[in-house]
Computed example of a mutant assay.
Amino acid sequence: MLHPAVLDDGTPIVRATPGDAAELLTLQRACWVQEALANDSLDIPALHESYDDVRAWLGEWDTWVVRRAGRLVGAVRGRLEGPDGPKGMAWDIGRIMVAPDQQGSGLGRVLLDHIQAVAPARVTSYVLFTGAGSTRNQRMYKKAGFRLRPDLDAPPGAVVLTKRRA
């Protein structure tokens, strides 16, 4: 089921298309350079992806974008992760991206809310990870009801956060 959304200013959140790949790659690099600085590491997968990698994951993830004045300024993706124990499925949330000049406007939170809303009905929990040093991201996720899960495996330098679906 589609869940179209519109920001307070009337800007729609729409599904990404393969034609968005180049701009997604540019936005991704702009966002993850900041993450590299916050985490004192260039060992961040998003910084090492190519245009072809982005085109490939567009086919594997449910990806949504926001454009303002024709410019791609935000994006988020989600996909089924697999069994979440005997209780259901997990929805893997990733690549919440907001252009540096748009950060602090609430767009990241709107994208996070949107990707949860479009998760399939059988999803019982959400999972995401962010840099261990990304305190701003962690604060946003915690305000949205996510909790740190030190018991779950995270990539080096990252933390995992989860939330049960209401």
Rank of each mutant, 00 (worst) to 15 (best):
L80S: 11
A16F: 01
N39G: 08
A69Y: 11
L111S: 00
W61L: 14
Y141A: 00
D151L: 10
D53E: 06
A154I: 06
G94S: 14
L37Y: 06
A132Y: 00
P18Y: 01
G104E: 05
K163P: 02
S125L: 07
D62T: 05
G94L: 04
R149A: 15
L42Y: 06
D84I: 05
S50K: 08
R68N: 10
R68L: 09
R136L: 10
L25R: 07
A75C: 08
E35V: 14
L72A: 05
S41M: 07
W61T: 14
V73E: 04
R122L: 12
P86M: 14
G157A: 06
R68D: 12
M97L: 15
I115H: 03
L161Q: 09
T11F: 02
S41I: 02
V54A: 00
V73H: 03
Y126E: 02
G108V: 03
D101R: 06
D43S: 10
R67M: 09
P45H: 09
M89Y: 11
A21F: 02
P83M: 13
G74I: 00
D8F: 07
G133A: 02
W61S: 15
T11V: 11
R136W: 08
G157T: 04
D52T: 15
L112H: 01
V110L: 09
K143S: 11
A30Y: 03
L107R: 00
D153M: 14
K87C: 13
I44D: 02
T17R: 11
Q103G: 01
V6E: 13
A16S: 07
G59N: 13
T11K: 01
A30M: 10
I96W: 03
R136S: 10
R95N: 04
T124C: 10
S134N: 14
D62H: 10
A75D: 06
D43H: 09
A75Q: 02
V65E: 00
R15Q: 11
D43L: 10
L111H: 04
Q28R: 14
L47F: 01
A30I: 04
V127D: 05
E23M: 07
I115P: 01
V118R: 00
A46Y: 02
A132I: 07
W61A: 14
W32K: 00
D20C: 05
D84M: 11
W91H: 04
A46R: 00
A117E: 12
S41G: 03
R165F: 09
M1R: 11
D20H: 08
